[in-house]
Amino acid sequence: MTAALTRPVRPRRRHLRAALLVLPAVIPVAFVVIGGVGTTLLQSLGLMPLVGSAELSTAAFNDSDELLTSALLSLSIAVVSTAIAAVIGFFTAVLIISGNWGGRIVGALGAAAVTVPHLVGAATVGLLLSDSGVLARLFGVAPDAWPALVAGPTWFAVIAEYAWKESAFIALIIVGTLATRITSYDETAAVLGAHRFARLRLVLFPLAAPSLLVASAIAFAYTLGSYEVAWMLGQTYPEPLSVMALRLFNSASLTARPEAAAIGVITVVLTAVVVAAAMLGLRRMRAWR
């Protein structure tokens, strides 16, 4: 009976078994990611026109002023909202890990926020922050005296929605990777004479830093590529990259399709640069470990 277990399995067969297990996931992912981005790239270069013959051209990238404005706007929104989310997320994680009843309440509310679809988040933040929104009524401010938080020049409501959702995401990622290990390290530091803030600075933060970085990079990438929040709560001009791409995609003009694809390509490149920087940072963190 045990012969089946001890019989040596040839390495090649083990490789094959592992490959067979992973293929059902790899094939659709490769199809959508490589096929999707590849086609977008071809479209942006004029190689897959809706009508007419294919011809290599960089015309879609020519309107550089417009593209630069949108890219800077998208990056600013992503940087600000991710920074806020990272700070709030880290302190929320510390609160949750501290393990008392307050931490449990915050943890439950954070988990609830993570499950809310971004579109619903945008709808409810709109109801909360608009000039006739719930907050304006709670503070008794008249609509014309209320600052333009929704669809205003500060992109306040967009940033608030991203910061709200992503802070919960970042907090839960940190809690998930640290919760089991952190108490014993915290106790060790305490019995070595380290006070609360020294422990936060010298133990908790460095231990949480890798997962904070990874979670923030994911949040940043999401924010940069997300469409519905900026579309619902943002100004009509200037537009973030994703909103401009979708408007061009849906427009009747023939030249618009390659331009929409070009914005897609630019967004992919921006995301790749930021993620690569984050991975470099992570590697340095590990080396310094």
Binding site: S184, Y185, E187, T188, A189, A190, V191, L192, G193, A194, H195, R196, L202, V203, P206, L207, A209, W288, R289
Partner: peptide, 29 residues
């Protein structure tokens, strides 16, 4: 609180801080 008692404790697991070198672990206190 533990940190105010002037004691030190060693546990069954070494619990050396993984983000610090051996020397910085000893320098922690």
């Amino acid at each position: 609180l533990p940190e105010e008692r002037g004691i030190a404790m060693v546990f069954q697991r070494p619990l050396l801080f993984p983000h610090l070198t051996v020397l910085d672990n000893v320098a922690f206190a």
